[in-house]
């Protein structure tokens, strides 16, 4: 009898354990976790969630540098087989793989982005999507750039003209035009996420053309930031806070906080919902944050100018949040 009680006790304990099993996440990243851009921002979000929920309740694994789509698909399938609760395919290029894989694992949830597609129209109900509104971030940086430039020439450097890069660029140009229409802004795309040398040369050419504020997205822009630092001009960043890279150069960074999408997704999964939702990341919901680095302006602008600049910028953010400013991307 006592033995039976012991077994029962064990079973209860086991049951509790299963119930309280950690939430397991696997993430597929197209570049490295230290790229100072897209992949790093996601990695940092997962670390933040783990710190908040505790290692007993939240565990994650990652596959980095998954730029080969077929390999990423194999990784996604493998993680799904291993019973992870949530698999994050952190790249818009992974979407078509998810359409193939997700139906085979109805109990697993998947999430991908940047996109506004969850494929419910195909009868798939276990895919979430996240969509950072890069154009909002671009717009705010555009306003900052317009207020900072003295020469009236501003440059932007992007990888290829698609997805978030395209949306950011469109917002950036609009932010400038809405603030100071006379300012000249050009955006160049260097056709690569890794060609640091060409990004750097594009930055130098902008400087030659008179630009005194530059911006850009994706990991190869570190080359351009380095040039901005050398030339003593301003840089406006995206994805992560890039000011540690060049504290006197990076005036502001639009930080994408993926936890704003991931936490609700985790919540929904724990409540039994598997997918079908699109989670935007905007200034309104805190998914986009402005990391303003005042130190970069000290000595270059008067304290009053800095205060005025900040006021205008935060006012812009407020107007985006309230919907007074809307940004269309064609």
């Amino acid at each position: 009898m006592r033995k039976l009680g012991g077994i029962l006790g064990l079973m209860v304990l086991f049951g509790v354990c299963t119930f309280g099993a950690p939430f397991r996440v696997a993430v597929i990243l197209p570049s490295t976790i230290n790229d100072f851009a897209w992949s790093q921002s996601m990695y940092e979000a997962l670390v933040a969630i783990q710190e908040e929920m505790g290692e007993d309740n939240f565990q994650f694994v990652y596959s980095e540098n998954m730029y080969v789509i077929a390999d990423a698909a194999a990784a996604i399938r493998d993680y799904a087989t291993q019973g992870y609760n949530l698999i994050i395919a952190h790249g818009s290029q992974y979407g078509s793989s998810l359409v193939d894989i997700a139906p085979d694992f109805p109990k697993t949830s998947f999430v991908w982005g940047s996109t506004a597609q969850t494929f419910t129209e195909l009868g798939i109900h276990n895919i979430f999507a996240y969509a950072p509104h890069a154009e909002e971030g671009g717009y705010v940086n555009g306003v900052i750039a317009a207020l900072l430039t003295k020469t009236g020439v501003i440059g932007g450097i992007g990888p290829i003209k698609t997805g978030d890069a395209k949306r950011y660029a469109a917002g950036f140009e609009k932010g400038i035009k809405d603030t100071r229409p006379e300012v000249q802004v050009n955006y160049t795309f260097i056709g690569s996420y890794s060609d640091v040398a060409l990004a750097s040369e594009a930055a130098r050419t902008f400087v030659n053309a008179g630009a005194d504020v530059l911006t850009g997205t994706a990991q190869m822009t570190v080359g351009a930031i380095s040039v901005a630092k050398e030339k003593g001009i301003f840089w406006l960043g995206y994805d992560v806070d890039q000011s540690p890279l060049a504290p006197t150069t990076v005036v502001a960074s639009i930080v994408v906080d993926w936890t704003v999408a991931l936490k609700p997704i985790i919540g929904m999964i724990q409540e039994g919902k598997r997918g079908g939702e699109i989670l935007p990341l905007t200034f309104a919901n805190g998914g986009l944050k402005l990391a303003f680095n005042e130190a970069a302006l000290e000595g270059k602008l008067s304290p009053i100018e800095i205060i005025e600049l900040k006021a205008t910028v935060w006012e812009t953010v407020r107007k985006i949040v309230s919907g007074e400013i809307t940004i269309e991307v064609e």
Partner: peptide, 14 residues
Amino acid sequence: ALLNVFQQNMTNGM
């Protein structure tokens, strides 16, 4: 000299 940073595959096929 030219870039003053290092990043994986920074030569990009040069």
